[in-house]
Design a binder for these strands. Structure first.
Lengths: 219, 219
DNA sequence: GGGTATTCTGGCACTCAGTAACATTTCAGT
DNA sequence: ACTGAAATGTTACTGAGTGCCAGAATACCC
């Protein structure tokens, strides 16, 4: 519930290894070990034929420690989505208030997906395991729903005030995340396509033009 | 895994009670009892302060029987979504092949939401409990994702063939379900609004015009 | 009516996810 | 080296979900 986020500063594993104290380096390493062990075991035996004890044993720690780094067995499969969330938040926050919100959102989503496509191998394995594992898929969807509230909070003040402002903000946020997710799933089933191009197509086909947007809210 | 669906014919509880055998009637009753007991206990003590043993005891059956009727503790909270799924499938299947797919989908969604708003009391309680219960929300999102594949399969053959046909079908399906879900959530937070009107607004604001749709696929 | 096959149920034992409490080790700063 | 803090390990526990098997209830047939 009030667990301290495993890496107090969510950061890419492996940067500035010497700048951190021994303690932090060890923590980073055990987290990485747990993740690697889990992914390997999942790929080898399947998600639900691997217990958290197995993962902990493979990473040479105790089950307790595993749960100190990950909230659930599913979370270790989802990976560094928290980091991606920060990226998106930053990307949104960096946009000027006057920019059309829909355009800003499209840019932020493309950025996140691009970051997603960097380690294509690991991402693909994760997604493949996820769609074979209902509980992991469910957990992933729940996370994406949290993103929606972030996006909705970004869009809402940029829409014209009115009775349906909140509705439109929610719906637009939900649609944006849905587009992103569906595009990624399609990408996994198609071989060798470029995610960014697919995302462009999807966004272009279903994007709401900023022209149709209500006038920006008065500051 | 290969559990027989609790009511072999998913049907509204309480129709034709005399036409069924004693066995079927009893099964229907225990299922209803379990659901009622669960909802009552959840509302009273909160979802995760109620164990499956408690629910079973309240319905005067064993825990084993509970799991013969519901796949999980979350499913009993979600309710008769399987029935709603059938409704939507029927609504889609009833549309002529020549009808613009986007229009047909909008109609089907509105129908489902309308059915959703009938027993507003129960639906509201369910949704309220759900958003307080991450695991139930996750399970619900997973179900909605299953709907997406249904919708995508409906839309796909009605789009012009091409490299991105599957992509567009997936994305449109995901957006449709997302719009529906976001609208319902907004409806729960707003007091007294009409769900159907909200849905109309949402669909109108973000709908893809059928004019922009590629030419219908040759039969 | 009775007898039999089928189906539903209950009870028991079990695996495993996740949590809590407490003791032990390990690192950081002096 | 010494001390406080942080990370880890050990143990024990709750509760979800499953499998197995015996017994009860129902349907079916005569």
């Amino acid at each position: 519930m009030d667990r301290t986020p495993p890496p107090p500063d969510a950061r890419v594993a492996g940067v500035e290894p010497a700048a951190l104290g021994l303690r932090e380096r060890k923590k980073l390493r055990t987290q990485k070990d747990l993740q690697a062990a889990a992914l390997r075991l999942f790929a080898e035996h399947g998600f639900d034929h691997v217990s958290t004890d197995d993962i902990a044993a493979a990473a040479e720690v105790s089950k307790t420690t595993f749960y100190r780094y990950f909230d659930s067995k599913e979370d270790v499969l989802l990976g560094d989505k928290a980091e991606a969330l920060c990226h998106m938040r930053d990307a949104l926050a960096g946009r000027p208030d006057t920019e059309p919100p829909f355009e800003a959102l499209r840019g932020a989503v493309k950025e996140v997906v691009g970051h997603f496509a960097l380690d294509r191998e690991a991402s693909g394995l994760r997604q493949r395991l996820m769609r074979e594992t209902p509980s992991a898929m469910a957990r992933n969807l729940e996370r994406q729903r949290e993103w929606e509230t972030l996006v909705a909070d970004f869009v809402r003040p940029r829409l014209a005030p009115g009775a349906n402002r909140d509705l439109l903000a929610r719906v637009y946020a939900a649609n944006t995340m849905a587009t992103m997710r569906a595009t990624i799933e399609h990408w996994l089933d198609s071989d060798g396509a470029d995610v960014s191009e697919l995302l462009d197509e999807a966004l272009a086909a279903f994007a709401v033009s900023d022209d149709r947007r209500p006038a920006p809210a008065p500051a």
